[in-house]
């Protein structure tokens, strides 16, 4: 192998001086590292990158980067990112957040963002719990998990974000594990480069409210099969796998949605004519 030509940007250049408030041990530290590593490899200067989030522990990511950021309201990262990308197609727009933000309160936007297929990369740090509000079940929490708010567990079948994403039309679907920041970075790089809406579901343990998730490190394994471009096959695989297959699971071929913006064909004054009787 050869060492690549000097690259002026490193992961550090995408990191701000603002220190994370996450609990030591949290998977999100690794995901932040993976995001900055990925951005460094993609090589767009930090000012040409926007990181958009909603609310939750993982949604604190934007201010921890040295990019333009938007830490909006709970659940609405994707529409905000969509509005930004549609009007500023020149930017690299990355949305980040957690399972509660993305799949519960933001669930409708998640489906429609997949469907719309704007060229966005969405990194979901899934820890199967609401951390910022002290440990309530999220849509991906297993039915028996006991908590103060839902004693005895929800009894509900967990939401399957990857299958939903595939059904709704996401163009790139991958699963990753926070304990593997290099692998996660690689997936993010590929997601950014893949046109259209890309979902990276990162299994990212919450060591405070779900300490048992530290065991994920032993459970994850590379996906045993190559990525497919067949949505049906991809959906069948993720529905039947053990939930710990890591890697690219689906690479679609849909064209991203990006109507022209900023190319005026007429002066606004020309519309006056239509109001003449």
């Amino acid at each position: 192998m050869t060492v690549e030509a000097a690259c002026p940007l490193t992961a550090r250049d995408y990191k701000s001086d603002y220190k994370p408030v996450w609990c030591p041990g949290c998977g999100d530290f690794s995901v932040l590292l993976a995001i900055t590593k990925a951005l460094a490899e993609v090589g767009r200067p930090p000012e040409e990158v926007a990181v958009v989030s909603g609310i939750g522990c993982s949604s604190r990511v934007p201010a921890y980067t040295n990019c333009y950021g938007f830490h909006g309201v709970h659940g609405r990262a994707l529409p905000l990112a969509t509005g930004l990308k549609l009007t500023r197609p020149d930017l690299l727009v990355l949305a980040a957040g957690g399972d509660g933000d993305g799949y519960s309160i933001g669930g409708n936007h998640f489906m429609h963002a997949c469907r719309r297929n704007v060229d966005l990369t969405y990194v979901v740090m899934d820890n199967q719990v609401y951390g910022m509000t002290k440990g309530q079940p999220s849509p991906t929490t297993s039915p028996e998990w006991d908590s103060a708010l839902v004693p005895g567990g929800t009894g509900l079948r967990p939401f399957h974000p990857l299958v939903i994403a595939l059904a709704a039309g996401a163009n790139f679907v991958a699963r990753s594990f926070s304990g593997d920041p290099n692998g996660t970075a690689e997936l993010i790089v590929e997601a950014i480069r893949h046109p259209g809406f890309s979902l990276i579901e990162v299994l990212s343990p919450c060591v405070t409210f779900r300490p048992e998730e530290r065991e994920w490190a032993k459970q994850v394994h590379p996906a045993p099969v190559e990525p497919t471009d067949d949505r049906g096959r991809a959906a069948r695989r993720v529905l039947t796998d053990d939930g710990f297959n890591i890697g690219v699971l689906y690479r679609g071929r849909r064209r991203p949605y990006q109507p022209p913006f900023g190319q005026a064909q007429v002066e606004v004054a020309e519309f006056e004519a239509e109001f003449l009787p």
Partner: peptide
């Protein structure tokens, strides 16, 4: 001091 791409390294471990 130029890093290789994240995927270019082949470590024994995850990191």
């Amino acid at each position: 001091p130029a890093p290789m791409a994240p995927g270019a390294y082949r470590w024994d471990s995850l990191e």
